[in-house]
Design a protein around this nucleic acid. Structure first.
Length: 578
RNA sequence: CGGGGCGUGGCGCAGUUUGGUAGCGCGCCUGCUUUGGGAGCAGGAUGCCGGGAGUUCGAAUCUCUUCGCCCCGACCA
């Protein structure tokens, strides 16, 4: 591509409404433009990169026997009523009416549509397994879109759906996708990690998220540092091993103490001169409308996903101020397990190993001392209820856990029979018996990958694209000016590179050298070739590795060979082979 | 939805406190010079100061209202 014929609207300054580096650089490099909150135009340069990501995804999906289809973005409300999600999905589902007043929505995901499609097509176990995928624009009316392409309302997603005749088949389909995802993110050139994720009501270990590792990530993941252990989990999923100690119950009798206006763990502990691990924090929740109490140590954080899964609930909310008053008879901050107006009380299993606790008295400005859970109140169940910390051992190997930040770019999930049952997607098995298909769904945020690649790779000059998804793999910069011979030679090199099948941007613009260098660095082509008057005289062209900044000279005589070697080195520095 | 901030040439901003009819940098156009890290000089174009209503002789500036954008939180797969 001749850059004189391309569109490179780079900006010198950060746009005022961009906060994160990927958003700033995508804007400055002239790759995207905002239309409205969470909705963007992809300019030619941005689209080129996006398409490269999509193509890698497509190739690996095809290789894993997934078949590409294209489903509609506008979906009938009736399909969503079949699964109950018309009511459940909430405001994220953008609903519209057509001229007849019929209900439609913009597809945030496609379980309903694909299940509807497959139930009409697949009748026999002989047609299974089947995996259909698409690369398409999704719309989710996010409460608060932010960070440019990282959390847009409209975004490009690859979504795949597998259909199997039995559990074993579903697990195999899941495994195929899991492996395909690893290949995809490796080929793109990102540092990533598959992590265990919450699988909600389905249970089991059949939900993994794929995270691009970047300090600016919105998610925190717990990773085992042991080389032999591959444990990594989303914080909401990460198990905390049960302590080995036996439950202890004996201690002195309960005693009420006045704690005037001390309603935070910090205040109470300071006032009573105890450490937070001697105190029990009582948290009150609404689980599907039912009041539930959860107890964790004062210095711990409750994991409401674990609580919800333990109870088997759908929706879990922290109780409102009024509910707390109703259930405890006291203002917020004085709840405790003794004399609590909530029947179901769950406790973190860590609380079992000690006694003599401090807790709220369910009375304004009072707490109790010498509490023994076994003796003084009825705990329905001791279970893993808290968020893991970096001082907890790895639940798999007992090794050291470390937290890192990640950006979720992929999710593989076993759906089971949830949708096939609700929508009556059945087939006849070998015995002529009708059965619901076992489903899985597998998403990749294609546009988010572009943003996360920049979050992971950038410096003060701009973006640094992995070669596989750079808008152009290489930028050839001609510094000819009046020296026509330089321009001629550059053009010759350009032709040669094109013939070699290199995706090259030839900067033949009538710009000063500084402008060309700055643009090339900003856009982040992983490779730059610079041909100037001196170089031409000496028979060399300069080659710069954008990532390392390292510059070498390639001979013009025998250029193709030298370039090929250099190119392989660049790819290798990204952990990629050609 | 709660809290905070911001809407002024294409972009980044000043001007608003104390009302007097709009300015700077970058970019853009023309010409000359320059040409290895975002050039210099000269000339030029571009604003319903987010929209509406009001106060006033007069509003970017004051009042009310509305729309949009950003951040934090709540919320959410």
């Amino acid at each position: 591509m001749l850059l004189s014929r391309f569109y490179i609207p780079t900006l010198k300054e950060d746009p005022s409404d961009a906060e994160v580096v990927s958003h700033k650089l995508l804007m400055r490099a002239g790759m995207i433009r905002k239309v409205t909150s969470g909705i963007y135009n992809y300019l030619p340069l941005g689209l080129k990169s996006l398409n490269k990501v999509a193509n890698i995804v497509r190739e690996e999906m095809n290789r894993a026997y997934a078949l590409e289809v294209l489903m509609p973005m506008v979906q009938p409300g009736d399909l969503w009523r079949e699964t109950g999600r018309w009511d459940f999905y909430g405001k994220e589902l953008l609903r519209v009416n057509d001229r007849h007043g019929r209900d439609y929505c913009l597809g945030p995901t496609h379980e309903e549509v694909v299940t509807d499609l497959v139930r009409g097509e697949v009748k026999s176990y002989k047609q299974l397994p089947l995996n259909l995928y698409q690369i398409q624009t999704k719309f989710r009316d996010e409460i608060r879109p932010r960070f440019g392409l990282m959390r847009g309302r409209e975004f490009v997603m690859k979504d795949a759906y597998s259909f199997d005749k039995d559990e074993a088949g579903a697990e195999a389909s899941y495994g195929l996708m899991f492996e395909a995802y690893k290949k995809i993110f490796s080929r793109i050139g990102l540092r990533f990690r598959p992590v265990q994720a919450d699988s909600g009501a389905i249970g089991g270990d059949f939900s993994h998220e794929f995270h691009v590792l970047a300090d600016t990530g919105e998610d925190t993941i717990a990773v085992c540092l042991d080389d032999k252990c591959e444990y990594a989990a989303n914080l909401e999923k990460a198990k905390v091993s049960a302590p080995k100690t036996e439950c202890k119950d004996e201690c002195g009798a309960i005693e009420e103490v006045a704690t005037p206006a001390k309603h935070t763990v910090e205040d109470v502990c300071a006032f009573l001169e105890i450490s937070a691990d001697k105190l029990i924090k009582t948290l009150l929740f609404n689980v599907d409308g039912e009041p539930v109490a959860a107890l964790v140590r004062g210095d711990r954080e409750i994991n409401d996903v674990k609580l919800r899964n333990l109870i088997g609930g759908n929706e879990i909310d922290l109780a409102s101020e009024d509910q707390v008053k109703e259930w405890t008879g006291a203002p917020v901050g004085f709840a405790g397990p003794v004399g609590l107006g909530v029947k179901r009380i769950f406790a973190d299993h860590e609380l079992c190993g000690a006694t003599d606790w401090v807790a709220g008295a369910n009375k304004a400005d009072a707490h109790i001392k010498h509490l023994s859970l076994g003796r003084d109140c009825k705990i329905e169940q001791y279970a893993d209820l808290r968020v893991i910390t970096e001082s907890d051992p790895c639940p798999d190997c007992g090794g050291k856990i470390e937290f890192t930040k990640g950006i979720e770019v992929g999710h593989v999930f076993k759906l089971g029979e949830k949708y096939s049952k609700a929508m009556d997607a059945t087939f006849l098995d070998e015995n002529g018996k009708s059965k619901p298909m076992i489903m899985g769904c597998y998403g990749i945020g294609v546009s988010r990958i572009m943003a996360s690649a920049i979050e992971q790779n950038n410096d003060e000059s701009g973006a640094i694209f992995p070669p596989a998804i750079a808008p152009f793999e290489l930028c050839l910069i001609s510094l000819g000016g009046k020296d026509l011979a330089v321009g001629e030679k550059a053009e010759e090199l350009y032709g040669q590179l094109m013939e070699m099948g290199i995706d090259v941007a030839y900067d033949d613009r009538k710009e000063r050298p500084g402008v060309k260098f700055a643009d090339a660095d900003l856009i982040g082509y992983p490779m730059q070739l610079v041909l100037g008057g001196k170089g031409l005289k000496n028979g060399i062209v300069e080659a710069k590795n954008r990532k390392t900044g390292e510059k070498i000279e390639l001979p013009l005589e025998g250029f193709a060979e030298a370039f090929t070697t250099w190119r392989a080195e660049i790819w290798q520095s990204w952990g990629l082979s050609l």
